[in-house]
Structure formats: C-alpha cells, structure tokens
Simulated scan of single mutants.
Amino acid sequence: MNRTVLPRVGRSAQNLPDGTILGADQKAWLKDQVTGAGEAWHCWVNSIMLSQLAKPGGGYMFTDQWDGFLAERKEVLTHVAQSGLEDLVVITGDWHSAFVDDIRPDFADPATPVIGAEFTAHSITSGAYSPEWNATNGPKMGAANPHLKYFEGDRYGYDVYEVTPRRWSTHMRVIGDRRDPRSPVSTLTTFHVDRGRPGSYEDRSTSTSPAQYRRH
C-alpha cells in the first residue's frame, strides 16, 4: 500500500481563484507520485475534508477545508483521473463527525467518474454539533451533495482500517461515553471498498445502524 500524507503547508487564503492548500512544491510532488504510482492501494492521509460539502441553494458549509480551494482540488483530482490511478482511499479527520463520500474529479458534475472513496472519522473526545443540528442538517447535506453516502454526528470514536489485497474495510468504532475512560467500544457500521472498483459500499450487517443521513 502506498501512503501519502497531505499536510496544510504553504496554503494561501481561502476562496481565491488561484488559491492553494498544498503550495507549489507539495502539489508538484503529489502529482509526480500519482503519475508514477503502481498497482496497489493508494491511501491519502488528509487533515481536512477533501470532498465537496455544498449547502442547499448554493455556497459551501465551510471553506476552511478543500471547498475553499476549488481550482486546486479540481486540478489534482483531474490529474488522478487522467493518470489512470486506481484504488484510491482518502482518510480524513477534523470534522468531529463521520462522513463517507465518493470522490469525483468535479464534484459539481455528477457525470464525472467516481475515482475513489473518502472516510472522515468521528472525534474521540472533541465536541461535535448537537443532535438537533445533525438531525436537521444531515438530510440537507445529503440532498445538496449527491456523492455523500453517509453522515453520523451523534457519536464519538475512531476508525479502524482493515486492508487486504482485495478489500479495504473501514470500521467505525464508537464509545459509549466520551467522559468515561472505561467506556465500552462497539462498531457502529462498516464500509468496504473492493479492489478495482472505485467508491465504497456499506456492509449489509450494519446498514440499519443509526445515522442522520444514509443514501439508499
């Protein structure tokens, strides 16, 4: 498995036509890595959400993530698509809630192909949005983002990644009470990515678990 870490170094201000979150040197390095990638799982460890999170009616939920750097995101993901790189999985944090997304070169165009999957993990202890906010906004985010497959924000925990030559599995592990260090841990749900098949799917055994949005 090839692992690539994408830190936020050299970033510019948000929402500029030529804004950058990577900086010129890191972007050139990343594109070189994509061009020379072999046949393997390709894991991008990303500090902020890569996938689009649009608001109903226009605009974006937050532009401190990749939604504030639209041109660079499209450039990088178009390069991935044109290079023929397969088996891309992006793992992300920062949101304090769990998301599962399909990755497309142009999120504004659902006709562009799925080229990978992104898993954004819960936080273990850091505060998230209220259950009322999640219940209201989960369906809204799903309606405005056709690539969004899953959102769950009422729980706390972490992801465990189980990787074999043929399948990547993301197990969402959640804790009963973040204030209790002895709190029990359980698996809320599991999503899989099959080798050679871009995008993810939820395991049938956990597909009825609680969530504020799930695309059927």
Rank of each mutant, 00 (worst) to 15 (best):
M1G: 09
V5D: 06
L6I: 15
P7S: 09
V9A: 10
R11F: 11
S12A: 11
L16D: 06
I21F: 14
G23T: 06
D25C: 00
Q26A: 15
K27W: 01
W29C: 00
K31F: 04
T35E: 13
G38P: 06
H42V: 08
V45D: 14
N46H: 01
S47G: 12
L50W: 14
A54C: 04
M61Q: 14
M61R: 13
Q65G: 06
W66A: 09
F69P: 05
L70H: 08
A71G: 06
R73E: 03
A81M: 12
S83M: 08
L85T: 01
E86K: 15
D87H: 07
W95T: 15
H96C: 09
H96N: 05
H96M: 04
A98Q: 03
D102C: 10
R104T: 11
D106N: 13
D106A: 08
F107S: 12
A108V: 04
A117S: 15
E118K: 01
E118H: 02
H122A: 10
S126K: 13
Y129F: 15
T136Y: 05
N137K: 11
P139L: 03
A143N: 00
A143L: 03
A144G: 01
H147L: 09
L148W: 00
K149P: 03
E162M: 07
T164D: 13
R166G: 06
R166Q: 14
R167Y: 02
W168G: 08
T170M: 12
D177T: 07
R178I: 09
R179D: 13
R182I: 00
S183A: 15
S183W: 09
P184K: 02
V193Q: 12
V193A: 11
D194W: 01
R195Y: 15
G196M: 13
R197T: 11
R197A: 13
R197S: 14
E202L: 10
D203I: 01
R204L: 13
R204I: 06
T206K: 06
Q212P: 03
